[in-house]
Design a protein around this nucleic acid. Structure first.
Length: 334
DNA sequence: CGCGTTTGACCGGCGC
DNA sequence: GCGCCGGTCAAACGCG
């Protein structure tokens, strides 16, 4: 397989279905264990599957406008990519490795990716589900707020949680919505969390759980809930930046997770990039992701992302580059 | 005993 | 003003 072919598969995966008409090449359906929607055969080992755009949309977990904005497709899109939507985009990156190798992404969590029709429920339910999601998406899509929050990301919890003045809205950390298919509610992400609350969700039989990072003075929180319409779908919303290194190795990996430099919006980038790099490194044959033997040049990796995704990376480019670089360097160690 | 979870109470924002 | 709802607190509890 040529490098160009690899690139095309990666490229196409991001923009299949709704997005494919916007980009020149059509995906080759059903390559190596994954169907045209990035779904894997039932025989595939249990995994948590990061949804394709199609799944996201069909599951009403993401609104089109948000995704359009995230990919810079909207004519009204500004230079600022909404954090949440951008992460929705990069979230799909986790499937890059499954696409590039034809194998499903492996995570500690158990779930099969089933057919794309499973999310199709009654339309009213879908609509309500979408409305709920839109509320969340709206919260995350206040660019000026997100930018402002980035600037105060290292604030202490006390400073952060309390309004500066009476009557002034409490500033929120940028939120990152993270949609996964999993039987497990609390996905292992390398950080330690303490549950501090649980609330019943309106119109849903599934409660929403609230977690806080257990590290001292770390302001990061996350909410975990299931889509009532599709219980297999877990919505994890992260808020804030970690102010410390990742304390836990992932999936029994023998090498430590790279220290998150300035830990921006999402350590999920670390997770995803780690898996992507691992997959790419372990895949047979050459590719165009700057892989030289057992080495991936992060610059080349990024350059080979589709332009709109490169744009997404800009927000965290420094982070991403560092992460990839760290991971690659560690992998090179004997 | 320390750490994490559970769960009811509380608070603030928001819509009517 | 009132009620609803999301989010948080904190005491009680469980577990290793």
């Amino acid at each position: 397989m040529s490098g160009d072919q690899d690139h095309r598969e990666l490229y196409n995966f991001f923009f299949q279905d709704e997005f494919s008409p916007l980009f020149p090449q059509k995906p080759a359906a059903g390559s190596a264990g994954a169907d045209a929607y990035g779904h894997h055969s039932p025989a595939a080992p249990p995994t948590t599957t990061f949804l394709s755009i199609t799944d996201l949309l069909r599951s009403s977990m993401v609104d089109y406008a948000a995704v359009d904005k995230a990919f810079g497709l909207s004519s009204s899109s500004s230079s600022q990519v909404p954090v949440a939507a951008a992460t929705v985009g990069s979230e799909l990156m986790l499937d890059v490795n499954s696409l590039s190798t034809g194998n499903p992404p492996v995570t500690p969590n158990s779930s099969n990716c089933s057919s794309s029709t499973e999310a199709a429920g009654d339309e009213d339910a879908l609509r309500r589900c979408k409305e709920e999601q839109l509320k969340q998406e709206e919260e995350v899509q206040r660019p000026e707020e997100a930018v402002a929050d980035h600037k105060v990301g290292d604030m202490s919890k006390e400073e952060n949680d309390k309004p500066k003045k009476k009557g002034e809205k409490r500033a929120r950390e940028p939120r990152v919505a993270f949609v996964t298919k999993s039987e497990i509610d609390h996905l292992e992400d390398g950080y330690r969390w303490r549950k501090y609350g649980q609330k019943a969700v309106k119109n849903s039989p599934y409660p929403r759980s609230y977690y806080r990072c257990t590290s001292q003075k770390c302001p990061v929180k996350k909410r975990v809930e299931r889509c009532y319409q599709n219980p297999m779908i877990v919505i994890t919303t992260y808020e804030g930046k970690h102010t410390h290194h990742c304390p836990i190795t992932l999936r029994g990996s023998t090498h430590l997770f790279p220290p998150p430099p300035a830990m921006s919006a999402s350590f999920c980038h670390n997770l995803m990039m780690q898996q992507a790099v691992q997959r790419l490194n372990s895949s047979a044959g050459d590719n165009k992701f700057g892989q030289r033997g057992n080495f991936i040049d992060p610059n080349v990796f990024l350059q080979n992302l589709p332009p709109s995704l490169q744009q997404l990376q800009f927000q965290d480019y420094g982070l991403l580059q560092d992460v990839v670089s760290s991971m690659v360097n560690e992998r090179q160690l004997p």
